[in-house]
Computed example of a mutant assay.
Amino acid sequence: MVTGWYGWPIERVVILLLGLMFFMIFVQVTMYHYRQNFRHWSMWIPVLATPIDGLALVTLTFANLSWLRAALSVLLAASLLAGAFGSFMHLRGVGERVGGYEMRNFLVGPPATLPGLITLSSVIGLILLYWA
């Protein structure tokens, strides 16, 4: 039986899971943007930011350092803004497809909800940083 996890507060567990989630988002966003050949410079932002956010969150789980918390605040705030910008770009991309904002374009165009996932994950991370 692993006893190192016994007594961990729920905030610490959620920070670890959130870090792992950022790594999974990284894999998904990299595949989508690679498929589109990184046609716009902004496609690199989540590809570079999500693994850094994930690594910082996982590191914070095991080493609660004040400088890491400060750096993570800046990183997550930047990811929040990048996710909001990505939502704008994805919705604009759906509208630029033939037929505009039709259901089929939401199904085959840029995934409209993926940047929002980054935004909300960043919000959860910021809440945990200032709550825990």
Rank of each mutant, 00 (worst) to 15 (best):
V13D: 02
V98E: 15
A63N: 13
A112M: 04
G99H: 07
F26W: 10
Y130Q: 15
L120G: 05
R97G: 11
V27I: 15
V58S: 02
A112V: 10
F88C: 10
L72Q: 03
A63M: 12
R69H: 11
A132D: 07
W41L: 13
R92H: 06
L55G: 08
A56K: 04
G109L: 06
L65F: 06
Y32F: 12
H90Y: 07
Y101D: 05
A71G: 15
S79H: 09
P111F: 02
S66T: 08
I25E: 00
V94C: 03
V94T: 03
E11F: 08
L76M: 09
L76E: 10
G54I: 01
L65C: 01
Y32V: 15
T30D: 02
E96A: 09
F106L: 15
G19P: 02
E96I: 02
L114C: 04
A112T: 10
L117F: 13
E11T: 11
L57F: 05
L57V: 02
I25F: 05
S87Q: 13
V108T: 14
L81Q: 06
G19S: 09
E102T: 06
E96M: 12
G100K: 07
S87W: 11
D53F: 04
V94H: 01
S66G: 07
I124E: 07
V2A: 14
L75K: 02
L20F: 04
H90R: 08
F106W: 11
I127A: 13
A63Y: 12
R92G: 01
S42K: 05
V14M: 10
V13L: 10
P115E: 01
L60P: 05
L72H: 04
M89Y: 02
